[in-house]
């Protein structure tokens, strides 16, 4: 895949845009089973990325991804800051400037593993991993952008009946059941936005 400046900029813009238009929904989800700061944290982080978007888009893909990861880590705080930061930094480390589909899949798998290592967590514990893992599997299975977006969306929905074992919601025990995980939702939003740009690009 050719990552030109323009595409990169549009991908960043799309990710930031979806966070900006959904941050209050994320706040509400985190108020229900966490501490209500996930929306503000995501907005703070992605707004910081947007502030640098021009410069970021100029750079080769790995540098861009690493810089995005660093910006998220240094601005978000909380649990999701290190996790999203780790995801993008690891992706930056794993990809080269023009990754093919196989390289992309492998990079995503490595980034997913880095998040799990950072969070000492695994899929099935009602976290963002419950979106990232099925998305990784769909990528490996050769799914197109539209399919990946749908997988991400459905995976976030599927966290509703789960019992939280990691993240602040885990303190709630049984009372965490019946609510969507905020980090799963934010992951599905970003993946959805990125996929939409890629779909349009390939169309």
């Amino acid at each position: 895949m050719q990552m030109d400046r323009d595409l990169l900029y549009r991908l960043i813009e799309a990710a930031v845009g979806t966070v900006d238009s959904h941050w209050q929904e994320l706040t509400a989800l985190d108020q229900a089973i966490g501490d209500g700061d996930h929306g503000a944290g995501m907005k703070r982080g992605f707004d910081a990325v947007m502030a640098d978007a021009d410069k970021l888009a100029e750079q080769p893909l790995p540098a861009t991804l690493t810089a995005i990861g660093r910006t998220l880590v240094m601005s978000m705080g909380g649990a999701s800051g290190p996790l999203y930061g780790t995801f993008f930094m690891e992706l930056g480390k794993s990809l080269d400037a023009a990754p093919d589909r196989a390289a992309l899949n492998a990079g995503f798998t490595r980034a997913l593993a880095a998040v799990a290592a950072r969070g000492k967590s695994e899929p099935g514990q009602k976290t963002m991993l419950d979106v990232l893992a099925p998305v990784s599997a769909a990528l490996d299975a050769g799914a197109d952008a539209g399919t990946v977006a749908r997988v991400a969306h459905d995976a976030a929905e599927a966290t509703v009946p789960m019992l939280a074992l990691r993240g602040r919601a885990a303190f709630l025990g049984e009372r965490s059941v019946g609510h969507m995980d905020p980090g799963a939702r934010s992951s599905s939003l970003i993946i959805g936005a990125v996929c939409a740009v890629l779909e349009e690009q390939s169309a």
Binding site: G41, S75, G77
Partner: peptide
């Protein structure tokens, strides 16, 4: 930030 862990 209030109720949010500081950044590294």
């Amino acid at each position: 930030a209030i109720f949010t862990s500081p950044t590294p």
